[in-house]
């Protein structure tokens, strides 16, 4: 579904990514683990295109998309749920969801997507007329994920969806991610600091450190390697 090879990028003169390569198979949940500040978010933003790639190759559904602008990627079904709740605080929850279906391709499926979103997050239906900025942290996180689903994606990249949430909500987030894979058939690339929870929920794992991929394998492989767990995951 997605193949990234030797990606390099950064901010100004500062290089953050040092040629990490990953592969995400269709219909799976793949996670990218590692402590804070190792370039995981930059990796997702570079794949999405909000950070410009310096070199490397991004292939999505067999097509090179390395330098395509973000709105074309969203139109092709690849979207990002950015870290830190980038929602439209001055718009209502409903308006936020409708913005998710902004593109013409997504507009056709608007009602259908809305139904799906409400079935995953019934709370959002109740909150429809409220301003998104007035919601609790967990509800805001739901809005950003739901908004991404409204764009009728094939693949979603989630950046720290459990960040700052209470343990019970974290569990709900991971359950929802599982549902998105099982019921909707989405492919998911997940970036997380919460190694425990993501190891339990994913099909394949990459471990990132200082902008490089240091290890990869099934969750079982990663869990059974004391070296990886101690060196990179702090488990």
């Amino acid at each position: 579904m997605l193949q990234v090879s030797e990606l390099e990028s950064g901010y100004g003169p500062m290089q953050v990514l040092w040629k990490p390569s990953i592969r995400v198979r269709k219909g799976t949940i793949t996670s990218l683990l590692g402590p804070n500040g190792v370039g995981k978010s930059t990796f997702l933003m570079t794949v999405f295109g909000s950070v410009t790639p310096w070199s490397g190759k991004i292939i999505y559904e067999g097509e090179e998309v390395t330098h395509l602008p973000t709105h074309i990627k969203v139109d092709k079904g690849l979207t990002l749920v950015p870290e830190g709740k980038h929602l439209f605080g001055g718009m209502t929850v409903y308006e936020n969801l409708m913005m998710g279906a902004y593109l013409k391709r997504a507009q056709q499926y608007r009602e259908e997507s809305l139904e799906l979103v409400y079935s995953l997050f019934p709370r959002l239906k109740e909150r429809g007329k409220q301003l998104a900025g007035s919601l609790s942290g967990g509800e805001q996180q739901m809005v950003t994920v739901a908004r991404a689903l409204m764009s009728k994606p094939k693949m979603i990249m989630l950046d720290e969806p459990s960040q700052g949430l209470a343990p019970l909500l974290v569990q709900h987030v991971f359950e929802t991610i599982q549902k998105m894979k099982a019921q909707v058939g989405l492919t998911i690339l997940l970036v997380e600091q919460n190694a425990d929870a993501s190891l339990a929920a994913t099909d394949y794992v990459y471990v990132m450190h200082e902008g490089r991929i240091k290890a990869e394998g099934t969750p079982e492989d990663i869990k059974s390697s004391d070296e990886i767990r101690e060196a990179y995951l702090g488990l």
Binding site: F48, S50, T70, H71, V74, D75, T79, L80, V81, P82, H86, L87, F88, G89, M99, G100, Y102, L103, A106, T144, R147, A148, S151
Partner: peptide
């Protein structure tokens, strides 16, 4: 939110 607008396409 510019970043939010981008992810909406």
């Amino acid at each position: 939110d510019t970043e939010g607008a981008k992810v909406c396409g």
